[in-house]
Design a protein around this nucleic acid. Sequence first.
DNA 1: GGATACCATACCGAAGTAGTAGAGATTGAT
DNA 2: ATCAATCTCTACTACTTCGGTATGGTATCC
Lengths: 149, 149
Amino acid sequence: MRLTARSEYGLLALIDLGVRYGDGPVSAREVSERQCIPAKFLEQLLGALRKAGLVSAMRGARGGFSLTREPSRITVLEVVEALEGPLAPTSCDGGSLCGRSGACAAAGVWAKATDALRDVFETTTLADLSVRQARFDSDAAKGREKERA
Amino acid sequence: MRLTARSEYGLLALIDLGVRYGDGPVSAREVSERQCIPAKFLEQLLGALRKAGLVSAMRGARGGFSLTREPSRITVLEVVEALEGPLAPTSCDGGSLCGRSGACAAAGVWAKATDALRDVFETTTLADLSVRQARFDSDAAKGREKERA
DNA sequence: GGATACCATACCGAAGTAGTAGAGATTGAT
DNA sequence: ATCAATCTCTACTACTTCGGTATGGTATCC
């Protein structure tokens, strides 16, 4: 269940692509600069997201990445699992520490925790986040405008 | 939010104490053997749980550990936070990566995830788990009985 | 053909995990 | 009083993971 910088960065990157969905490919460098994500690290994440089928890549000059689906049809769960592996909170989780296996009272809590997390991540889509981000961006733009005046 | 072996072992240990709540102190070695937890590692965990005020220790021969409260008044959240630190899923979580700070669309999901986890852990008590464990134990005992017959 | 981009792989330092080791302090029993 | 059982504290270590960086490709546009 460990959520690391991979999820954090990866989600930000996909939100960035979501805001620009339909405008053609967006280069990794652009995303990297806008979202302040180390460029080469981001490449790795985008590679993983491509292999998971969430983004497609166009190579060469004017290339870049785009979402393979509408932002409303990509869940946070997909992003997280693409970057961190399957969502499981502990090594136990129905496992078999010392033959405890089924008869482990603790396992239930861990399973419930996983389910709760899964539910949150599954019911949040990139669209939800991208519109929010777009609003933040435009607010920030207005702020800068005001400042110049 | 990383859940490690500390939580897994620690919770098992406290469940073990919960099952025997009221019977006087239980030695770390006993718990270690029953729950298959490396003895010296368990000592560390019990030390942390003592500092968090969840267990009290009696030193010397016939010493051991006992819960400081009724199992029904100790939540899994307390156990987890005593062993892993405060429950926060990502470094972000309202943080400030590259000055994004408040205007970060992703922060909301991470916060929701934390809340969901917190809720699960807060509404599960040691009593819930201890009675379950006791049932498993007695079932196992019956199984062994049957086998001998 | 060169600039721009993605692709693959390897590497690296720092931190964290899961213990282990050993010496010391405290208590109950004999 | 002594001994064994028990907790307490600190340090150490092998291993893995995390968060990147580096290098050298390959594809595409102009």
